[in-house]
Amino acid sequence: MDGQWLQWMRGMVTVQVRGGEPEQLVNRALKGGLQLSSIQWTSADKLQFELSVNDFFRLREHLKETGCRVHVTKRTGMPFWLVKMQKRKLFAAGIILFFVGVYLLSSLVWSIEVKGNMKLTDEQIYAAAKQEGLFPMQWTFRLQDTDIMSKRLVSKLPGATWIGVERKGTKVIIQVVETTEPDKQELQNPRHLVASADAVVTEIYTEKGRAVVKKNMKVREGQTLISGTIGGGAYTQTVVAKGSVRGLVWYEYDIASPLTQQTKVYTGEKKTKWYAMIGGRALQVSGFGSNPFETFETVVYEEQAAWRNWHLPLGRLKKTIMEVRTEERELTEEEAKSAGMQQAKANVMLKAGTDAVIRNEIVLHEKTDNGKVYMKVHFEVEQSIVKEMPLVQMQGE
């Protein structure tokens, strides 16, 4: 490998020998210290071999002695490359400037990402990092060692127990581990748990306090379910009632579901715009002109240049503008009823809570009029039926 590199530095030529005595030429050249390689006959009267540029000029004296003539068929190596570059100075300068530009751009911090912070804000971490010389558009060779920077950031951010700084190409990642503190329990006053709605109790669990209702018992809104008063007489005391009570609650909904449905359709017409991404800026290079569509959707796709683990601040962005139109679709009565029922169920679950379960649904009334299906629906829902009521001094219960 070193020999090939040395040959490239000196420059090599491939020559074709015609006339005279080619065998004598080769023998005299080798005897005179010239280094010939790849010696071969290309035809009955033509001999070809390779030699360095310096040896090529020393070959002339042997040509006269043997009556041979040579023709150079190939030139390789740095001397010839430099000659070409002299003829293409602007091209060579452009190549050099390109690589210099890429090097300079890859030597800057283009973005900083913060991970793991919950209590500390990104702004606090960015401000502390800037005090340590870490900020966008900073030269990477001016940054401190990551271990030193991590320790200094921990000292500047009291809410952090550990901070890791990692550099990936032009991006710096700050990983934060915050101090964990036990959750402070809110001070709670004595209370009852009462019914939040009229219901039939299906399940009751008392953690603290005294249950005053049983399973399958009908309760009214505001009625005490778990009392915060326990004991009796001189031994009566008040506590924070805790527990869970579930029950069947009834909802009635009037549904009006249209027999037509608006749907979005792509026409297939689109316009594409390309942008060159340099740092955080986008320069449009194609797809100029105004948007030709009245209604449309835009899809953006971005690619960032990378080399190994280095993410370069260069890339391209593709913006596709697709024409859409709105069409009306006729629904059958069954489809309209199903759509209306699904919307009503969603409203019930929103009101009853995420842990609620619809146990039964009954359509009380149904008719079709003026392009809509009208329904009155009765839902039977099992849900949590407790709410808190502060306990006041009571004479008895």
Rank of each mutant, 00 (worst) to 15 (best):
T238F: 13
T238C: 09
T238I: 07
V239L: 05
V240R: 06
V240F: 11
A241I: 05
A241N: 02
K242N: 09
K242P: 04
S244P: 00
R246K: 15
R246Y: 08
G247E: 03
G247K: 02
G247T: 02
L248A: 06
L248Q: 08
L248P: 01
W250G: 04
Y253M: 07
D254S: 09
I255Q: 02
A256M: 07
Q261L: 09
Q261E: 15
Q262H: 05
Q262V: 14
K264S: 11
Y266D: 13
Y266F: 10
T267C: 03
G268S: 10
G268Y: 11
E269I: 01
K270W: 04
K270A: 10
K271Q: 14
K271F: 01
K271L: 05
T272D: 08
T272R: 12
K273A: 04
W274L: 13
W274G: 06
Y275T: 09
M277A: 14
M277I: 11
I278L: 14
G280Q: 14
G280R: 12
R281E: 14
A282P: 07
A282D: 14
L283P: 02
Q284V: 07
Q284T: 06
Q284I: 11
S286R: 02
G287N: 06
F288G: 00
S290R: 09
S290V: 12
N291Y: 00
P292D: 08
E294W: 00
F296M: 07
F296S: 09
F296A: 12
E297D: 15
E297G: 04
E297R: 08
E297P: 01
T298A: 12
V299Q: 12
V300Y: 07
Y301A: 13
Y301H: 14
Y301W: 08
E302Y: 00
E303G: 09
E303M: 06
Q304M: 05
A306R: 15
R308S: 07
R308A: 11
N309W: 13
W310P: 03
W310M: 11
W310N: 11
W310F: 14
H311G: 05
L312T: 05
L312H: 05
L312Q: 03
L312N: 02
L312D: 03
P313Y: 05
P313K: 02
G315Q: 02
G315R: 02
R316L: 09
R316S: 10
R316T: 09
L317K: 15
K318C: 02
K318A: 00
I321R: 02
I321W: 00
E323G: 01
E323N: 02
V324K: 14
R325E: 14
T326F: 04
T326K: 03
T326S: 05
E327P: 13
E328G: 13
R329C: 12
T332L: 14
T332W: 11
E334V: 06
A336M: 11
A336R: 08
K337Y: 05
A339W: 05
G340K: 12
G340M: 12
M341V: 06
M341P: 04
Q342E: 15
Q343G: 06
Q343H: 05
A344L: 00
A346N: 13
N347H: 12
N347F: 13
N347E: 15
V348T: 01
V348Q: 01
M349I: 06
M349H: 08
K351A: 15
A356E: 07
A356G: 05
I358H: 11
R359C: 12
V363Q: 05
V363S: 04
H365S: 12
E366C: 13
E366A: 13
K367V: 10
K367R: 14
T368P: 06
N370W: 01
G371C: 12
G371S: 08
K372T: 07
V373Y: 10
